[in-house]
Design a protein around this nucleic acid. Sequence first.
DNA 1: GGAGAATCTTGACAACCGTCCAAGATCGGG
DNA 2: CCCGATCTTGGACGGTTGTCAAGATTCTCC
Lengths: 205, 205
Amino acid sequence: MPSSAAVRLQSRVDKFEDRRRELADAALLTLADLGYARTSLRTIADKTSFSHGLLHYYFADKIDLITYCVRRYKDACVQRYEGLVAEASTPDELAAACGNGLAATLADAPLMHRLWYDLRSQSLFEEAFRDDVAEIDGSLQDMIWRLVRAYADLTGTQPTCSPSAAYAMFDGLFQQALQRHLAGSETALDDLRDSSRDLLPRLFV
Amino acid sequence: MPSSAAVRLQSRVDKFEDRRRELADAALLTLADLGYARTSLRTIADKTSFSHGLLHYYFADKIDLITYCVRRYKDACVQRYEGLVAEASTPDELAAACGNGLAATLADAPLMHRLWYDLRSQSLFEEAFRDDVAEIDGSLQDMIWRLVRAYADLTGTQPTCSPSAAYAMFDGLFQQALQRHLAGSETALDDLRDSSRDLLPRLFV
DNA sequence: GGAGAATCTTGACAACCGTCCAAGATCGGG
DNA sequence: CCCGATCTTGGACGGTTGTCAAGATTCTCC
């Protein structure tokens, strides 16, 4: 049983963490709208009801804030996608679910994905982003690889490419679809659905 | 035969264009080093021997400068890659040349490619970049598709994916390799070589 | 209920940005 | 050689940024 001091400490930490989440969720809207480079702590504060000092009270700096935001979102994203893909019982069903899942994920919150790619690009320049980006990339790669292995189980065959290559190709399709979708293309989502459905079997030849 | 006035005008325009190129090439070094968001016209001026006013004399604004720079580089890049791939006479040779070419391109100037991906990400937020990015993307997609068709000719088969999907997948591999290469991975180049060599035949099943 | 810690607001600060401009340097044709 | 066009410089301006600290407010616990 924890001491009462420990309980107090815990609840204080929880409260701090809750508030962080609250601020992050509010900030995420502005961040997703304007992107990393164009968003200042002041802009975020103006668009919410918080003061700019408060953000600095809960987050060490801009980098701390944005990585917290994106990490939070991507976790939810992976979890959601896993659900969409879990039910397939034949290879074709799984391939279709893969395409549908990616298209649905993209359609659901394109601006969030845009922010993710923004953050990943920034990490190529800003050392401070690298670790968090690598971790998110890793979780996405795992997500894709679970999909590939599920397909392998259903077909009784073995994939002929590495996990990172599989992730890279799906990611390329997804990123291009996002780009076209945001540019107003009507067919971007359907193309993503088709091309990612077709990609899955290609990984086994 | 042009009038003497026209000759003078022409030479003046040429001179202006030459100077633009000269400034752009100098700016490109700093831009590739720091990325779009972190680079100001003043920083560029400091790192070169030009004044910041001069940059503004030859380029309307920062966007004008950076798009000019990247477009200039990517043109050279496409031309170079085409040469590397032109000589293959069997499907396997072509696939190998494809992988070697991409790896060589990446190894040659990773910072330039980093800048390109930075620019492309910014274009998702900044309307002003869209047209130039779309044009560069188009030329890269054409480059890849010429490769795919050459492979089709050598094998006597037909590709089973769209030009944009083919480009997206190669681009995904390339981007991931860049990311890992810059993070210090020893195997990134070899992995790119292998995975892109393997990708080519996958597009025909 | 009041002392002390926490949460939050507000304003100030220096640094930096893109832009613009006036004045000096340089060049080229007459 | 000189004059006007072109090129280049460097500084001034208004605006924005991240950071910080001092004070106001709220909460917690005795």
